[in-house]
């Protein structure tokens, strides 16, 4: 492998702007991805994740801003960068009537350095499917094939745009394993996702994007800690829940939010919040119809920053 150890970031962009006739898709974005890290771009639909990643991949021209990839620029070193990057696009459909092996062979032929086709098949565990038509693969298998195609040139930096969207939990885990192996070899990853657990499981750092800008940046742990509450209590009642003011006054509670009849309380002291909440409800004479708790996640970070959910159903 020809990786030159260096302190320079794998990827850096400053003041990135991309305008479309009726929307500013990326509105002044600064980003730095370090060598060897897995960086996750999180954000709701339309946040500008795909636009950003395609500019970084050299597939789209920005209106303003600088991009540096592996210490190179797209204008001057396009050919070299194409050889050193691996790309998986959000929308690509590979040819349905080619087999898995034929597809990989095709992509492998574009690179003069990289693993053997059979090694790629093993890497994504599609050896048993090598002779199947792409059109007959499951969603998870197709995604793994797309990743294998991205890995065909033994890239130093891998771009993945929603690699696991629409996959069942087991397929997602299989895909995470593939990415884990890539990282173990020293590869750098920039991925976008809607899934918080995915970002937790894979990413060293995440950037939360909304309306074309980064609204938060850090390790998943630090971001979760930044809302000052490690837990979330969700409940619903038959009747009217107590007012927000009263809820915020409960011990440990930092924040109260309502959504679809549910109330979510972000708290730093679960053991104090729950008994106090139950007392309050008993005092009001309202019956609890749902009570659940979970550790605070990046989803809660997003909600706390924007007041909206990441996945707007």
């Amino acid at each position: 492998m020809n990786r030159v150890p260096t302190d320079a970031p794998a990827l850096a962009c400053r003041g990135l702007v991309k305008r479309y006739p009726d929307i500013v898709a990326v509105a002044g974005l600064d980003l730095e991805v370090r060598r060897g890290e897995c960086f996750g771009l999180l954000g709701p639909n339309g946040a500008g994740k795909t636009t950003t990643i395609e500019i970084l991949e050299g597939l789209l021209d920005q209106d303003e801003g600088e991009v540096e990839v592996l210490g190179r620029g797209w204008r001057t070193d396009r050919d070299e960068l194409r050889r050193r990057l691996g790309v998986q696009l959000q929308e690509t459909q590979l040819a349905d009537k080619l087999t898995v092996e034929e597809t990989l062979r095709l992509f492998r032929s574009f690179f003069t350095d990289g693993p053997a086709v059979s090694a790629l098949l093993d890497l994504v565990e599609l050896g048993a499917k090598r002779a199947s038509w792409v059109g007959k693969l499951s969603g998870g298998q197709k995604q793994r094939l797309a990743i294998a195609c991205a890995l065909a040139g033994r890239p130093e930096l891998l771009f993945l745009d929603e690699p696991t969207t629409g996959l069942d939990p087991q397929s997602r885990r299989q895909l995470w394993d593939v990415l884990g192996r890539f990282r173990a070899d020293g590869g750098t990853i920039l991925l976008t996702t809607h899934y918080m657990d995915e970002a937790h499981a894979l990413c060293d750092r995440v950037g939360i994007m909304d309306r074309g800008t980064l609204i938060a940046l850090g390790t998943p742990r630090a971001l979760v800690a930044s809302i000052g509450a490690e837990h979330v209590v969700e409940f619903a009642v038959d009747g009217t829940p107590p007012p927000d003011q009263a809820l915020r006054a409960l011990p440990g509670v930092r924040e109260a939010r309502r959504r679809d009849g549910h109330v979510a309380l972000a708290t730093s002291e679960l053991h104090a919040t729950i008994p106090a909440l139950l007392d309050r409800l008993r005092h009001d004479g309202t019956a609890l119809s749902l009570l659940a708790t979970h550790s605070a996640t990046l989803e809660d970070v997003f909600v706390s920053l924007t007041g909206r959910h990441l996945r707007d159903e």
């Binding site: 009537k97 492998r108 032929s109 350095d113 790629l120």
Partner: peptide, 20 residues
């Protein structure tokens, strides 16, 4: 040149078209 068992890109592209 090492293409990991694949042929020249022009050959692979042509074969892909032909098979499809």
């Amino acid at each position: 040149s090492n293409r990991g068992g694949a042929a020249h890109p022009l050959v692979e592209l042509t074969l892909a078209r032909f098979r499809e």
